[in-house]
Write a protein that binds this DNA or RNA. Structure first.
Lengths: 209, 209
DNA sequence: CACGGCGTGATACGGTCGTACCACGAGAGG
DNA sequence: CCTCTCGTGGTACGACCGTATCACGCCGTG
């Protein structure tokens, strides 16, 4: 009872087309017809594989989430052979910042979805909540580990520092996307604060490609 | 040669209606007809006072900008009789955070516009650029003054600190709007970092109403 | 008093949207 | 061989969009 065509491949193809449009022209331009044209299929097919538009939006959002997750994992492992808390934190935060083409795409698309969620909060419920909470906890844990290793002032509150850093990176990303700041400038601001948090800047900035 | 009706009043009435819709239902729901209904006028009138939709959007954005400016000024003067750098910085940052109804409205509406600008950058040009750059410079100046007064570690880079704080508040605001965080929690994170920046927390948190 | 422009209403037009409906070829199962 | 379901195309429908057009009362000015 093998399917005559690979459903998952087609779904991926269509969802990727939507993400591409959301990145380049915004979600409000991602009509069913536009997605179909971008994916090179007929409108009927988009309807067939995703019966409704909301289903398509949700599916694409899940894929975007997975892509960001994969990117973070890749950056963490690429940060250092023995992953120190500092390298892990640096990798996570730097990888969210819209520096290269991929992160720029992901960040742009995410903020497109953000506006959507703001005025239609039920979308969030169907989408297994957000992972920023988990991410924030993970960051806090890394900072706590750094404190035990003596790399971070033990008087600092790891949860507060993690929340502040994550929010700062988020805000920096917004300013880069908005064109108020260069991505290099944003990176400078981030590394400045990381250097303030951790000890003297031991060559941990060598994670740039 | 007095106009038969107060043009500016009508324009305000209509623009406010748009901002109200942008706050509650998002900008994508702010159609000409919806704005007309919200303002209690006919569709023709909206067209009459703002010939095109883009003009309406731009005018409303300018009003929103003025409202935020006014709010910041009010919070600065309400912060303390002799305005210290710390109280000024605290007032500015706290007033951006979506804590009360007004700031929540402003922040929500701004982020609605943000998505609009992302995929139509020419809007920004017609709108005299953004003031965050100016704001950031102002914050840096305040921090530099605090350094001279000995309230802030002189080794810190005022521009970096200002950029970081502003981005952090922006990110915190996003998380509050997104429902990931309580507004009180965001305020806690902000005051924590302000307390870390300035000396011990001298009762400057008494600016809450 | 005439009149011309201002403020306003109603309605029309072309377009795009999400979704639904109908038809049809092909390959699998009886 | 028949039949049924899957995958696909084309097209229609109703709604809403931004904008344009026509018509008409009112009031200040000549």
């Amino acid at each position: 009872m093998t399917a005559r065509v690979d459903h998952e491949a087609r779904r991926t193809q269509i969802a990727e087309a939507l993400l591409r449009i959301a990145d380049t022209e915004g979600l409000q331009s991602a009509s069913m017809r536009a997605v179909a044209a971008e994916a090179g299929v007929s409108l009927r097919l988009v309807q067939y594989y995703f019966t409704t538009k909301q289903a398509l939006l949700l599916d694409a959002l899940a894929r975007l989430r997975d892509q960001l997750q994969a990117r973070m994992n890749a950056w963490i492992t690429a940060a250092g052979s023995p992953p120190t808390p500092r390298s892990v934190v640096t990798a996570i935060l730097a990888c969210i910042l819209p520096t290269d083409a991929e992160s720029r795409r992901i960040t742009r698309t995410y903020s497109a979805y953000y506006t959507l969620v703001l005025n239609d909060p039920e979308v969030l419920e169907k989408h297994g909540a957000a992972q920023p909470d988990i991410l924030e906890g993970f960051l806090a844990k890394q900072i706590r580990a750094a404190q035990k290793a003596g790399d971070v002032d033990s008087r600092k509150d790891p949860a507060m520092v993690a929340a502040g850093l994550l929010a700062m990176v988020n805000g920096l990303g917004s300013s880069v996307l908005g064109g108020q700041r260069d991505s290099d400038e944003a990176m400078t601001v981030l590394t400045y604060h990381l250097d303030e948090l951790f000890g003297p800047s031991q060559r941990s900035t060598t994670l740039r490609t």
